[in-house]
Every structure is written in C-alpha cells, then in structure tokens.
C-alpha cells in the first residue's frame, strides 16, 4: 500500500490538472492565467494542463471578486471536484474584493465561499507570480 500511495503522490505532483473559473472579474487575471499557459511562460512543463470539466481537475483556479450571481455556481463546481482538491485564488479581488469592495453585487472574497489554499496577490498578478503560486501549491502537495 505504501508503494501505491507513493506512486499516487508522485503522479499528483507531476500532473496537477487545473480548472479555471472566473467568478465575475474583469478578465485581466484570466488573460494572465492563459498567458501563463502559452509558450513564453509555459506552465505545462510542470505537468499543468487546463481542463474543461471540474471532475477531471485537481486544482481550481479562481479569479474575480465572486459576484452574487456566480456564488452558487462556484460552490457547485467546488463540490463536483474529486478529493483531494485545492484552490488557487488569483488576484487581489479574490482576497478582499479589491476595487469592487462595497459594491452591492459582490461577495468580496473567495474565502467567504470556499476554502482557499494559496492566494496570489496583484491586480492582475504577472504570470511569473501565478507560477510562483503554483509552485507553492506543489510544495503543499508534497507534504500531503
């Protein structure tokens, strides 16, 4: 069993598949997340692959301040992911609501809705910062 669990852990660290969810942000973080996937930054070298379905993904990448309209759907996506699951919140909005804090349409903060493992600050964070956040998350996986 020990060998098997080691193998599973190895596989998990070498191929963290992500699912990207915009909870009502301005698109700025989203294009930076995509930029991180394209040739110049290329997170695929860490085995990171963007997936279309929450059931295939290990890591949920959330951007945006979570609008009231998307809140329910965010929870639903989180519940559909299989365990163990991780959440990477990208951008200042995901922490405090950022510039949208105080607006009647926002919940202001992903951690108000679902548990978050790593926050990446910045408005929007540079792809380098997003990669740094992913590496921090991988370290967390190592300890699992």
């Amino acid at each position: 069993m020990a060998v098997l669990s080691k193998l599973v852990k190895w596989a998990r660290i070498k191929s963290p598949w992500i699912i990207h969810y915009n909870s009502g942000g301005c698109n700025g973080c989203d294009i930076e997340v995509v930029a991180a996937l394209t040739p110049r930054f290329d997170v695929e070298r860490f085995g990171i692959l963007l997936k279309g379905s929450p059931r295939h993904a290990d890591v949920l990448v959330v951007t945006g301040p979570v609008t009231r309209q998307t809140k329910k759907r965010l929870v639903r996506i989180y519940n559909q992911m299989s365990d163990p699951k991780f959440v990477l919140a990208v951008g200042t909005c995901t922490m405090t609501g950022g510039v949208f804090r105080g607006g009647y349409g926002v919940v202001a903060g992903v951690d108000e809705v679902i548990p978050v493992d790593v926050f990446v600050p910045g408005c929007p964070p540079k792809p380098e910062a997003i990669i740094h956040g992913v590496v921090k998350l991988l370290e967390k996986l190592q300890k699992l």
Binding site: N22, D30, S53, P54, R76, I77
Partner: peptide, 13 residues
C-alpha cells in the same frame, strides 16, 4: 452537463 468552467481566453458568464 453542469455549468462548467469555460474556455481559456474568453470566460466570463
């Protein structure tokens, strides 16, 4: 098939 995340570049609701 439930509300999924979207596609890598244009992905607002």
């Amino acid at each position: 098939i439930p509300v999924g995340p979207q596609h890598p570049a244009l992905k607002e609701f």
